[in-house]
Design a binder for these strands. Sequence first.
DNA 1: TTATGTGCAAACTCTTTGCATTACC
DNA 2: GGTAATGCAAAGAGTTTGCACATAA
Lengths: 148, 148
Amino acid sequence: MNAKKELELYIEELRTLVKKRGLKHSSQREQILQVLFLAKEHLTPEEIHQKVKELSPGIGLATVYRTLSFLEKEHLVNSISFGNEGKKYELNRGEHHDHMICLECGKILEFYDEELERLQEVVAKNSGFKLLTHEMILYGICPECQKK
Amino acid sequence: MNAKKELELYIEELRTLVKKRGLKHSSQREQILQVLFLAKEHLTPEEIHQKVKELSPGIGLATVYRTLSFLEKEHLVNSISFGNEGKKYELNRGEHHDHMICLECGKILEFYDEELERLQEVVAKNSGFKLLTHEMILYGICPECQKK
DNA sequence: TTATGTGCAAACTCTTTGCATTACC
DNA sequence: GGTAATGCAAAGAGTTTGCACATAA
């Protein structure tokens, strides 16, 4: 499937969802989704605002925040926060993953390990805790920065 | 070892550290450490400020922030942040653990699982990532809230 | 005595909210 | 036409910073 078609699927999902909630569609929300779709990395609200302004010059930062809250609540995007550096957002592409963050260059790597996921379930169950979601961040030095 | 003696050890550690850095001791820092020592749960800077004011009524919130930064940098305390709810601090009692947070009541449970720790090392190594530390938070519903 | 720590207030950053206006259905 | 979404500006919350004064060494 090519990227354009894939993007259309996400937008379709957004339209369906908006309708289901009795809300109205807006080009701003669609464009924010598009920016997240095209992003190769995790973006801050501010960065998203900058990029969306190329499509809708007049868009306000508040709209970005409102849209991100909505999209996150509806699980179309995920956020990751670390330290005091604020939240960063990424499109929820359906495949759960966790993150490694390089303390040297700030790069965010993604990973997924089935065994780790399974063990978390076990640990939670052993405490009588009903696991809904989790966040695992490994901090360290990425391969490139180690070479330096 | 009784609690009083244990606290004195932490304070001694603080004094040593302060000296090593060429800094000066202060009663405020000592009392913030004491509040963290006595705390049964993770505290926000604001909560710490409230509690320390019982010992030093005139202490300023800025001092709490400055001290927490210092203590965290020196690994005498750990912080945990989730969502937009700001950071919470706990005394570093030397035993690493991770957290489960109840999305219903906000309670923070601690846990430690050797196998999970080991697997994280493996996963990082497989990516050529040099693991230094990590943060794992399981979100869900605690046993008490499930009963309701 | 001299450099560090503190308290206070102002400044800053990130995020949310109120309101008049615009856009969707 | 009626309701939700937007843009703007102001307000909030949390945290940091500058500066004069207090305090430890």
